[in-house]
Design a binder for these strands. Sequence first.
DNA 1: TGCCGTTGCGCAAACGATTTCAGGCGCATC
DNA 2: GATGCGCCTGAAATCGTTTGCGCAACGGCA
Lengths: 329, 329
Amino acid sequence: MAITIKDVARAAGVSPSTVCRALSTPNLVRDETCERVRRSAAELGYSPNRAARGLITGRTANLGLIVPDLGNPFFPGVVKGIQARAREADYALFLADTDEDPAAETQLVRTLAKQVDGLVLCSPRMSEQELRGFAAQTPLVMLNRRVGRLPAITFANVNGMRQAVTHLTALGHRRIAYVAGPRTSWSNRERVRGLRAATAAAGAALVEIGPVLPQFDGGVAAADPVLAAGVTAVIAYNDVIALGLLSRFNARGIAVPAEISVIGFDDIPMAAMVHPSLTTVGLPMESCGRAGVDLLLGLLQDPARFGTTRRELGTQLMVRDSTTAPPNA
Amino acid sequence: MAITIKDVARAAGVSPSTVCRALSTPNLVRDETCERVRRSAAELGYSPNRAARGLITGRTANLGLIVPDLGNPFFPGVVKGIQARAREADYALFLADTDEDPAAETQLVRTLAKQVDGLVLCSPRMSEQELRGFAAQTPLVMLNRRVGRLPAITFANVNGMRQAVTHLTALGHRRIAYVAGPRTSWSNRERVRGLRAATAAAGAALVEIGPVLPQFDGGVAAADPVLAAGVTAVIAYNDVIALGLLSRFNARGIAVPAEISVIGFDDIPMAAMVHPSLTTVGLPMESCGRAGVDLLLGLLQDPARFGTTRRELGTQLMVRDSTTAPPNA
DNA sequence: TGCCGTTGCGCAAACGATTTCAGGCGCATC
DNA sequence: GATGCGCCTGAAATCGTTTGCGCAACGGCA
């Protein structure tokens, strides 16, 4: 059915070997022959069978991507970046969604590993031990989590929180709440760390609330405790939680930012679309995806580079309408 | 490096052929031998090389998915459904994002087609002619668009609009605006069709505004013309536009739903999270993805079924806080 | 003229699995 | 006791590429 290298060879009057060389290493073949082969290939619409090539070269020209939940608005941006960069480099991309299930994650890594040259793990849920084990067997890059010296792209969570706290204290806030994400999440731990350091340095009080699920309902649930804590500002683990806070504040008739300031984290698209628009710590999600693939491709070319393959991406505070000076300032 | 069928054969003291049979057609091999092979395979952690298998069987056990823009909140749900169903059926999934570029779409279909057994095209942008061409060469299912008798999963757009109009006219609205999506979009055309029929049947006036880009800014831009049209209710092509409307109404101090009712389409997650929460025509996105894969798998098993492979999925009106009776009712 | 290096190309062996074909063995049948 | 039939297994061909090796032709140099 499909056109193979033999068809091209016949059409061009040469052997399959020559076709192969003409297309992949043209300097090994006479210009005229090369041209003839190329023309035949183009006419027939030939393109090599990647499976067959992979069989002999050992390279599949595929990358794998494992994501905990595509529905989480944090991920599409990252996936877009990964996909775009992979395509530029002529790699196809396998996608798997684990539905937040660490067991499924392990299983998928195992299955996908054999069909790809490398894996991108987006906010992996699995244990450090498992991650190290897999990393020893397959080229792999983590996004949004760091484990030892394993290759990873992360965001400057600590500094991001410093930016948020600086913004609030500059406005005059002295008592700030934090609505925490899952305790097991690496990025939550980092954010808490940054937050404690920054509030301590600024001499502001920090009230930690939660943890809650990093979802809208988590924010809704956290809103009342936040108000009860007598703070003038609240920082959420992520934007989705912040949106839940806004919603509940609105329902209770609490004016944002007049009565309380709200800051999110991530800068998902919705953050700019709600009322009041959400001040948030922006993460370069698409860059993260691209950087991850870059790292992985580098690793594939030169596995020795392994030790030096970590990068932290800067954050940017997006000041919008959900923050202002505290009420009685 | 990796374990091949030969390693297993050696370990079990049989030939590679027997290993293959023991694992894929056990009834052709003596129970005892079969058991021995299975044990060796398990011990060595063998799993067959899919590329090699694909080379000889002609099946890749891969499906391809092409999406115009993962950032559009409509798609993640669909992709999740596709991914889940594909995995259940032991297919891996290639993902490609075209960034809304029809040329890239064509290109990607061509490239992916050779690495997969079938393709899922999500809201394809390419021309009918091209689609027919590809469909003749590759098993393929469209989502959210219908072209002739090509396999497709669609939503009941017409009936969805009837649900929306019925809701509004029951509340007493007599003059309704529609903010149109792209003229080239199949679903926009269907929705307009349903809208015209439903308003005509109900004796309500319909004011068409736009088309605008199916994005937040499109809705923001359409808000003022909507107000100028002197309507008591507005239906948007999709939720994202509706959110833009809400935002601009809010900014202009127009109360929703007191002064104007707003209805969206799709029921993206954000629709329930904004204030006021958005009444919208809900689409079963995950089911759509699953149904698409089901169709495709059916097609792969029995290509003769081709002619009968279309399905329309029902919509459900989600009544929330953005609609009520018109002001002077 | 003889030799050598270069260039261009074909042959054939891989890669890892599946599948066809044929053979060996045991058992029942005539 | 020969024949035939099933059952189980191994050898070998095959899928579409890539690539090491060898051969032929050709030009340059002594």
